[in-house]
């Protein structure tokens, strides 16, 4: 970089750094604040008198004898059985990611290698499908699912989430497959592989970065979903997000808000860890669609 060309006035540096700092506070503070507050009692976190109470925690000290309390977490995980919802989320999300990637790599590979016009049209149809609001699809499912006794079960939700994720998964994997030179599978086929063998033994080993990135986004889509899981799961099969929404119905009782706060922090923690380890993949995934697109 030519240093002279990029020298900035001090005023501009201060302005732009200040702006970034302001943004960082806006982005991160709500989560840090809630994390801190989840270890207090309701009277401190929602303090009518003075917001400093949430930091010093006089009521927490008075009610529990310590500056921090795990009451909210105990109440949510044990008393309200939130652990069951966490388990359900784990099952649903894992199964969705694995099935999505299996179907998506097969389809994405075919779309990337077929030069015909219909491959383009399939991608366009997938784009239109991606735009469908999920709740409109749910309103299509409910009545048939009730009639055929499919409603309320985890496998139904898993397969629905897989299908809803497919358009996005196909687009992303398709653009990753386009990056792998055609010569690679063609030379494998000259050596006597079938199309499937060359896909399985030659292409997939070099596709792992793309598969991991796409898997991350499938994970996020399934983990963050509310419309499908809230409407298609019965009470005992509920996952975390709809359960948190139903905690709110019982917030009138003193202390129960803190159950919801603790549950919210528990549900955010895995996402936090996810960004920590996979930041580079998330960034490259977000831009993959844009650059090819």
């Amino acid at each position: 970089m030519a240093a002279a060309a990029h020298r900035k006035s001090t005023g501009l540096i201060v302005l732009s750094t200040g702006f970034v700092i302001l943004w960082l506070i806006l982005a991160a503070f709500p989560f840090l604040w809630t994390l801190w507050g989840s270890f207090k009692v309701q009277g401190d976190f929602f303090s009518r008198a003075d917001w400093m109470n949430a930091i010093r925690g006089p009521l927490t000290l008075e009610e529990t004898g310590a500056r921090f309390t795990g009451q909210g977490y105990w109440g949510a995980w044990i008393e309200s059985g939130f652990w069951r919802n966490v388990l359900n989320t784990g099952i649903v999300v894992m199964a969705t990611v694995v099935i999505s990637l299996t179907l998506g790599t097969l389809g994405g590979y075919a779309l990337a290698r077929s030069g015909y016009r219909y491959a383009f049209w399939l991608l366009m149809i997938a784009l239109v499908f991606r735009a469908m609001p999920h709740i409109t699809l749910v309103s299509g499912y409910l009545l048939p699912f009730f009639e055929w006794n499919l409603w309320g079960h985890l496998p139904t939700t898993i397969i629905v989430l897989v299908a809803i994720n497919q358009p996005f998964t196909l687009w992303m994997l398709h653009s990753f497959f386009l990056n792998i030179p055609k010569d690679l599978d063609e030379s494998a086929m000259v050596d006597g592989c079938t199309r499937f063998q060359s896909f399985r033994l030659v292409i997939m080993p070099v596709m792992w970065p793309g598969v991991i990135t796409t898997g991350l986004f499938s994970f996020l889509l399934a983990y963050n979903d509310f419309a499908v899981t809230a409407m298609l799961l019965s009470q005992e099969n509920q996952t975390m997000v709809p359960r948190i929404a139903s905690f709110l119905g019982s917030t009138q009782q003193e202390g129960n808000v803190m159950f919801a706060v603790a549950a919210v922090v528990s549900a955010t923690a895995p996402l936090f860890v996810l960004i920590l380890f996979f930041q580079r993949q998330i960034v490259s995934g977000l831009t993959a669609g844009a650059v090819k697109g």
Binding site: L24, A27, F31, N224, V241, A245, V264, F272, Q279, I282
Partner: peptide, 12 residues
């Protein structure tokens, strides 16, 4: 830190 608002579940 910038990624947080986008990655975190919209409802949460």
């Amino acid at each position: 830190f910038s990624l947080l608002p986008m990655i975190v579940t919209p409802l949460i």
